[in-house]
Simulated assay, not measured.
Amino acid sequence: MVDIGIATAGAEQPINRHGAIAGEIIAEGDLVGLDADGKMVQADASADSTVMALGAALTPATSLSEYQEDEVKLVIEANRALVDRDRVSTIAYGVEVENGDGDWEFVPGQPVYLAPGGGYTQERPSGAGDLVQIVGTALTPDRISLSVRASDVTA
């Protein structure tokens, strides 16, 4: 018999969030997933290095080597995680992701995919073995409604 339960620790941990130790440098808003070691890494639709997106990173993760010793305390207090040391949180839906650079040029109302090489795109991945995963819908040319689900994944 299988004992099935809800995967939350209570109301303070909603099901649309995930967390894992940062496995590489991650920026806030990056699409991320889990590697074979269970670490949070950049999601990638490329057939060569497929990592399905679980959501977008809520906090950045940086490498300790990027900071001088006296800066590390400031980094930790600034809500940042350190690679191979701290957990990174992601959110799968219920938020809007906005491109502050203003260079996406998405068509509103159309799906947004996980891109080969990582990131967001409106071009459906079409390479042999590429992962096709819808991660949201464009609201404006530079803003999407995030909606990352495993049910939207095809090979």
Rank of each mutant, 00 (worst) to 15 (best):
E105P: 12
Q110S: 14
R85Y: 08
L64E: 12
V72A: 00
V107Y: 08
G127C: 07
A115Y: 08
D70P: 00
A115P: 12
V95Y: 06
I91N: 08
P111V: 06
A92L: 06
D70M: 02
G119N: 02
E77H: 02
R85A: 09
P125D: 04
A61Q: 04
E105A: 10
I91T: 09
R124H: 11
G109E: 09
A61Y: 03
G109F: 10
G94T: 04
G117N: 08
Y113E: 13
G102M: 10
S126A: 10
S65H: 02
L58Y: 14
D103G: 11
E71Q: 12
D84H: 14
N79Q: 05
N99K: 01
V107P: 10
S89D: 12
E66I: 05
E71P: 00
Q110N: 08
V107F: 12
L74T: 06
A115N: 10
N99W: 00
N79Y: 14
S63R: 07
Y67S: 01
G127W: 14
E98M: 01
D86Q: 03
T59A: 07
A81E: 09
N79P: 03
L114E: 15
G118I: 11
Y120A: 05
E77L: 06
V107W: 10
D70Q: 07
A78S: 02
A92W: 08
P111Y: 11
N99Y: 01
G127A: 06
T59H: 15
Q110L: 08
D84T: 06
E105T: 13
A78P: 00
V95Q: 09
S89W: 10
R80Q: 13
N79I: 15
A78M: 00
Y93W: 12
G102F: 09
A92Y: 08
S65A: 05
E66R: 08
R87C: 05
T121D: 09
R80A: 03
A78L: 00
A81M: 11
T62F: 01
A78W: 00
P116K: 12
V88L: 02
R87I: 07
D86Y: 04
V72N: 01
V83A: 12
S126I: 14
L74Y: 02
A78H: 00
S126M: 11
Y93L: 14
V72F: 02
E98W: 04
G100N: 12
A81R: 09
N99A: 04
L74W: 03
